[in-house]
Write a protein that binds this DNA or RNA. Structure first.
Lengths: 348, 348
DNA sequence: CGCCCAGTTTACAACGTTGAATCGACTCAA
DNA sequence: TTGAGTCGATTCAACGTTGTAAACTGGGCG
């Protein structure tokens, strides 16, 4: 059994409260006493029981991160960033996967388990604007993403509209005139898909190019296969385009694959840009141009806001923060330096 | 402030212990009393304080998962699987990223935070066989991976040698004779790289093919760019081969990319197989043949063993479990059905 | 020589929960 | 009618910690 304050106290010959005082750097502890206690702590390999400390102090040193699924690269990289940001503040992160299921997303906020952490960073995918009132829990919440605005929680979001506009303008600046969209959501206005489509439209409008629904491909989910399916769809309906804006990197990758299979050169025939700046976009063929939406800034801001809210729950009114973005041009729009010139393997 | 047992008791007009009994389905509670209490619970929206429960009961309902980094797809998918497996048992998962740093890996086991969970699932990347004695903590540990065998902890591992042998045999069965390896580790014997290389050698031996170090490319890390670098290396030294065994999928993807850039057709000129069955291998061009090492079985076994160990710490001696694997042939070795036959877009 | 005060240490209660032991009331059999 | 037994509910202690307040120590000063 692990040693407790009492065990240490017995060995050191002091009261257990003195041991507690030593551990918490209480000012009035005689040096000789401190030394005795520290010796006993080392001897017994004492480690404080954080559960007891939590019960007493009311906070746990953990935060919950609720997201759809870690096997989706965007969320894996988001989780990585959140864990790193939390670690800088001595916090540990507990991850809940909601599977983008509405019931699970509501459960996460209602679960007693949530109280095993001091706050919730919540990236919903099933809940939407109409559920803004349901965003509440026993701990402070920082909301991520674009599905819900104007709740009573703090909110960190990327600048979807301006970023998508910039991505589109990047393609226009390269002389592309007919920019297809892969990954729109039917009828959506306020989610990532809706906002990014709006940025796309704004960019066209800014250049006086009419919007053509005939080169916009709709999907249901932003999974890998859907980008491919959407591109198949575009090709099947005989759409004419010289560029593609994939509303996220995963979709863009699927689209690139189908384009290449169909015999198009990227970016020669069709330039492609994605959105998210996933790590893997640096290693595809061709490397994928994309938009860095400021993921680490999102994570750091979320942790910072959560900590402020934990310290001062009713302090300021709910805040909405938008992070800085950056267009990342790579081979899929601006082309590669040169094809490799390696000696041929003789085999087969 | 959240309601406690005492608050509920006051409202229901019973002692707080009776409320506790209702919550824990204690047998001897009159129906009328139960109803009164349940009404009060609903009225106050009472939720048990799990921290207090943990302190009293000695377990938390959480497990820690320590891994190098979530932005590495293999570990993201592992974490996904572990969280799902844990959820089936009502456990929640707390993730620690070690960054493959030796000091951090040791810290994870020594940290008092670990006691905020009931057990540790630990996938080390810096610690090695010589550190087997250091694998211990205040909670039960289940070790994952191939870096450490014979510690005092339970251990779940994939069948690296037979699986790598099967992957190699898959290439041999397709008539390939000169199989390059991408991702070997200099001098390593017991880690994933060493074991998979051994499986490769066994396969060659089984067919009477001599091992040729000239078509084995060494790397330091298994990051995406290293597969590309290793393939560049092979091409630069004029190696001759008709197939590639990437020791993991990420390396294989990098290798494929460089092969295609250099003008080789995959699998026409060079067949490529990876290892891990990452989700994304289903969506690359060509789709990547690989080995499914039994990730969900690893996760489920780890959780199950951990729970057994939590219940009965000193029960059985340490166990080593190997999960079932499966070669997954895809386009990068067996070729695609047919190139797409889509109408041409007229643009650009 | 005794008192006061600063410095140091300690006793006690509390955080919210559960297990063990206790207690009262009621039923049933002798 | 009484004792045993059962059901139902309560009291008490404990998990390991920290905050509050009280108690002790010694030295300086009147």
């Amino acid at each position: 059994m692990a040693a407790t304050l009492h065990d240490v106290a017995r060995v050191a010959g002091v009261s257990f409260k003195t041991v507690s005082n030593v551990i918490n750097n209480h000012p009035h502890v005689r040096d000789t006493t401190r030394a005795k206690v520290e010796k006993a702590i080392a001897e017994l390999d004492y480690r404080p029981n954080l559960t007891a400390r939590s019960l007493r102090s009311g906070h746990t040193g953990a935060v919950t991160l609720a997201l759809p699924q870690l096997s989706l690269p965007y969320f894996a990289e988001l989780a990585d960033a959140v864990i790193e940001a939390a670690a800088k503040h001595g916090l540990v992160v507990l991850i809940e996967q909601t599977g983008a299921d509405r019931k699970r997303e509501l459960e996460v906020m209602a679960s007693p388990r949530l109280k095993m952490s001091d706050g919730l960073i919540f990236s919903p995918l099933a809940l939407g604007q109409e559920d803004a009132d349901l965003i509440k829990a026993d701990v402070p919440i920082v909301l991520l993403g674009e599905r819900i605005f104007g709740s009573t929680s703090d909110h960190v979001t990327m600048q979807n509209v301006p970023a998508a506009r910039a991505a589109t303008e990047h393609l226009l600046d390269l002389g592309r005139k007919r920019i297809a969209v892969v990954g729109a959501h039917e009828g959506e206005v306020i989610g990532s898909a809706g906002l990014r489509l709006r940025g796309y439209k704004e960019a066209l409008e800014g250049r006086g190019i009419p919007y053509d629904d005939g080169i916009v491909a709709y999907v249901v989910d932003w999974h890998r296969s859907n980008g491919a399916a959407a591109m198949h769809d575009l090709l099947d309906r005989g759409a004419s385009f010289d560029a593609v804006f994939g509303l996220n990197d995963t979709l863009a990758q699927g689209a690139v694959r189908v384009l290449q299979e169909a015999g198009f050169r990227v970016p020669g025939d069709v330039a492609v840009i994605g959105f998210d700046d996933l790590d893997e976009t640096r290693y595809t063929l061709p490397t994928l141009s994309t938009v860095d939406p400021g993921r680490s800034e999102i994570a750091e801001t979320a942790i910072r806001m959560l900590l402020e809210r934990i310290k001062e729950p009713a302090g300021t009114p709910p805040r909405e923060v938008e992070t800085a973005f950056r267009v990342v041009p790579r081979e899929s729009t601006v082309g590669s330096a040169a094809a490799g010139s390696h000696p041929s393997p003789t085999g087969q």
